[in-house]
Design a binder for these strands. Structure first.
Lengths: 200, 200
DNA sequence: TGTTCGTACGAACGGTCGTTCTATTTTCGC
DNA sequence: GCGAAAATAGAACGACCGTTCGTACGAACA
């Protein structure tokens, strides 16, 4: 079975993820990537057969890493509110845990591909929906555990967490707002407080 | 004074805005744009002198249109909460008011340029900061008018509105969530309710 | 030892990019 | 209407794109 090849391919995917974080999945160039990794263009290309396949594999690699560094550790936290908190904290730390110097690759890809039909958009949408469903599931468990009020809408909660994450990404990266992290946490605390309090 | 040239340039900028909405500011291609507008590549190019200048002008054009269709109409609403609401509603309608088939051009540009130093990033950041400041100003007026509680942080409010807008953009475009609009409104109502209520 | 196969390389392809140059057409004040 | 100036077109450039092809190296297996 391919031993050396697998190592190389993983190294390529790691480089592709970092590169995509900066220039987007579509902005990746086989020339740039091969130069950065000291490989030949054709040698790198041979591992994937097409650019689209490289993009797809990079997306898959990112999803696997995300599961490793934010989903799985959160499962170690107790069910209910603590786990919801762990997911949020993991979300904020994910672009540094798996180095993405240009910001979350899913955010970049979402904006790039939200109107470009094809397998990449399809897979990306799937990944995002899974994340959404997982987050909503954790919220539902928090309701069942009595941490959150029973008439809370988990999907709505997930929607708003998504918004906080995106606003944080935006404020910290483009706006260089030093208070971005603090703002994100305050927003999340307000959200949790509203979820905890009995119906007004 | 340039008469014909100005008309052409405006038509180019309108086309560039629509195109940038789909493929991003960097994704714009002079060939694509000239073909779409039935102009020659060199003829179009002559209006701007460089691609970067075209991008910068497109960004400026978008900012001017944004001021026209969301900021100015909101000024017609009474100060305080109504104006804050008008700004939020205008924000959600802006990509359809000024046709952007691929979604808000500022969102696309923000993700593309948040880590690409240069005049485009600088100008984009300025535009976004102005919007943030304007929104926060409207919130401050709502506090002064007694609509919102006096210890509300206008910047925090603006941060969260930003998040709702981004989450809505994301949910409606990539995820094809039919409830995205409803969710955005519910999130906004919760935000306003929290701003209105006396400190818990 | 010889053969095979997985792996990487170098050269080249047609195509498109942003840009430059030189003409040609169109506009507009006189 | 005329002539200057502005506006547009056309061809070409070097660079880089994704992709293909033929080939060389190295290890595994006969």
């Amino acid at each position: 079975m391919g031993c050396k090849g697998d190592q190389t391919r993983d190294a390529i995917l790691e480089g592709a993820l970092k590169l995509a974080s900066r220039v987007g999945l579509e902005g990746i160039t086989i020339g740039m990537l091969s130069e950065e990794l000291a490989l030949s263009k054709s040698g790198l290309f041979a591992h994937f057969g097409s650019k689209e396949s490289l993009q797809l594999r990079t997306l898959e690699y990112a999803a696997a890493r995300f599961a490793q560094v934010v989903v799985m550790p959160a499962l170690a936290a107790p069910r209910g509110e603590p786990r919801v908190r762990a997911l949020f904290e993991g979300l904020l730390r994910w672009p540094e845990r798996v180095p993405q110097p240009g910001g979350c690759v899913f955010v970049a890809a979402a904006v790039e591909f939200d109107d470009r039909p094809g397998p990449i958009r399809d897979r990306l949408r799937e990944i995002r929906r899974e994340w959404h469903a997982f987050l909503a599931g954790a919220v539902r468990r928090a309701i069942d555990a009595g941490h959150f009020r029973s008439d809370l809408d988990p999907q709505q909660f997930a929607f708003e967490v998504d918004g906080i994450g995106l606003a944080w990404h935006h404020a910290s990266r483009l706006l260089d707002d030093p208070k971005a992290g603090e703002r994100a946490h305050r927003a999340f605390e307000a959200l949790v407080a509203g979820a905890r309090a009995p119906r007004r």
